[in-house]
Every structure is written in structure tokens, then in C-alpha cells.
Design a protein around this nucleic acid. Structure first.
Lengths: 160, 160
DNA sequence: AAAATTGTTCATTTTCAATTGAACAAAACA
DNA sequence: TGTTTTGTTCAATTGAAAATGAACAATTTT
């Protein structure tokens, strides 16, 4: 059926779809969060399915993910069996998830790799003349610096 | 044909493939840059095709992109018609590209969207009771803050 | 001028993650 | 007890982005 979205809902959904896509998260996550973000009332899964015209499967998984992130909060409504949700104000949780799941594993894991690469690149000759080795050493510094800045950025974004 | 990669090359390629994938860039970009990063000599396109066992098309496009970013530098080799490249030490250029092409457009464009959303959400009633409006206003602050922090991060990463 | 070399473009194919929807489970209700 | 409601799971499908490779252009060599 054709979903009936208000202008506000449509705008919000667009906004958050593009938001989560930058972070490499599926579109449906952005749709669901966008819908909840401008909803006055808690929404249940079947309302999400109906409004967004997506499958039960997508809605179920999307809600589970967002709930896991703490980006939406489960609300119990008296006399209704369905689980309802409201958007948490802390959008930063979504960004945090990106840092913690995608960026940080790469960065920590990356340092070991660079060490291994430096070993392989070391040919015993004059380090000054070993250009690949110089690049690796420089990259190691740079990556360490990057890794150290993550907690700062996270803290900065959290204090909303 | 089966490409003949040294351990170092394989490790470097792996590293940069995962690196660029975090930023939402195609794998081939990571492969090419990874190969050049640990090469002592400038490489030409056909060498890249041969080593990585990728198509001419991918190599051509990938090299053009990396050259555009300034992540690899064109080198002329006397007596050879082919254009050769070396990896620039400034890996940060790749990250910069992510900021400038993906993040910043979203963020600036996002502020206007939030203004529009605030207008749509404003029902003329008491703002204290308009929860969606409160969320939008809070998000606007948060996003402005995020946008302002980008130049700082960029500067921090650049000074390698 | 013909042939070979180098590189680009872009329609088609491939790949892989996101989405679907049917089957299933669990709980509430009649 | 059987039925309805609510929600999850996962094999199959879809869709979007990347990779391919053939056709083409431009340049150099013979």
C-alpha cells in the first residue's frame, strides 16, 4: 500500500537516510530512525512497516539494531502487547557505533599489521635508502595519532 | 594469470583495502595504493594490471582517482612512454577526500534541512510540549558542533 | 602510412550487501 | 484446546555499485 508520510516525516527520513549512509549503515536504519525522530508518540513495529512500506524482516532487524545502539528506547504502553519505541535524543550513539564497530577495530588491528610490514620491508640495508620502509614508519606514526584522537572526538560529540 | 605478490605487497594491499573500505571507496583503489605504497620504483598502469590481476578499466579509473586526490604522483621516466606513479607519503589526502566529498556536503546541506524541519514541526503550540521540535533543535546544535570540529580534525591529521 | 603502444570510455556483467517474505516460535487470548 | 497476535530467522531475491573488457582515440615507432 502507498505509505502516507507527512512533509515533516519525509524530510526527517531523507535526512537520516543520508546520515546513516555516510557511516555505511543500511538505508532502512535511517528510515526507521528518521520516522521515530519526528514522532510525538511511541511507535510499534507494525506501524513502522505500514508507514515506511518496508518488510517485517527489515523492520524487525532495523529496530533490533537501533535498540542495541540505544538510539531508540523501548516503551511499554498499558493494555498493548506490542513493544513501542521512541527516538533517544542522543543521535551521537549512532556515530559512536560507527567508531566502535568500524573504525577502532581497524585502527588497533592496523598497528600490528604495520609492524609486520616494517619487518618485511627491512632489508638490512641503509634505512635512509629504503623508501617503502620510510613510508611504513611514517604511516605508523600517523595512524597512532589518528587512533588517539578518536576518544577526544567521541567525548566532544557526546556532550550534546 | 596468477599474480605474483610478495608477502609485503600482500600485507600492504590488505591494509589499504580495508582502509579505503571504511571510507566507502572501492576496493581497487586500496589495492592500487597498497601496491604502490611498498614499491621502491614508480609503477606504470600495465604493471599494476599484471600484479593485481585487475582489468585495464579498473586500473585506469583507480589511477585517475588516486592521481586526482594527490595520493599518487605522476613520474616521468626517461625513455619510457608510459606514465609512472609513486605513492605520496600523505595518506591523509585520502581521508581528506572522504571529509570533503562525503562528510562536509552532507553537513552543510543538513543545516538547511533541519531549519526546514523545525518550521514544519512548529505547530504554534507550547514548544515545551513539542517533543519532535525539541529533538530537532537539539540535533541542530549537535550538527553545528560536528561541522565545526571537522577543520580541526583535518588540520590535526594533516600535520604528519 | 601502417603497425604497435598506451590509455580512456562506457555498455555489460559480476558481486555482495540489503531487503523480502514465508516459515517458524512464543505468548496471549477465546 | 485452538486461534490470534506479535515478533524473529533465514533462504531466496533484488538492487546498487564495482569490475570487466571490447571498442575507440591518441600518440609513437617502424
Amino acid at each position: 500500500m502507498v505509505s502516507q508520510l507527512s512533509k515533516l516525516e519525509a524530510e526527517s527520513i531523507d535526512y537520516f537516510v543520508s546520515f546513516v549512509q555516510v557511516l555505511g549503515l543500511p538505508k532502512s536504519i535511517g528510515q526507521i530512525y528518521g520516522l521515530m525522530f519526528v514522532s510525538s508518540d511511541p511507535l510499534a513495529m507494525d506501524q513502522v512497516v505500514e508507514k515506511l512500506d518496508i518488510s517485517k524482516g527489515s523492520a524487525s532487524q532495523g529496530l533490533a539494531t537501533l535498540k542495541g545502539l540505544g538510539a531508540i528506547l523501548p516503551i511499554h504502553i498499558e493494555g498493548d502487547r506490542r513493544e513501542h519505541f521512541v527516538a533517544d535524543l542522543q543521535v551521537s550513539r549512532i556515530v559512536n557505533h560507527f567508531f566502535e564497530e568500524k573504525l577502532e577495530p581497524r585502527l588497533s588491528n592496523g598497528e600490528g599489521r604495520l609492524d609486520r610490514m616494517a619487518q618485511l620491508a627491512d632489508d638490512g640495508g641503509d634505512p635512509k635508502e629504503n623508501e617503502p620502509l620510510n613510508r611504513i614508519v611514517a604511516l605508523k606514526k600517523w595512524q597512532k595519532r589518528g587512533r588517539k584522537s578518536i576518544p577526544l572526538i567521541k567525548r566532544f560529540l557526546k556532550s550534546s
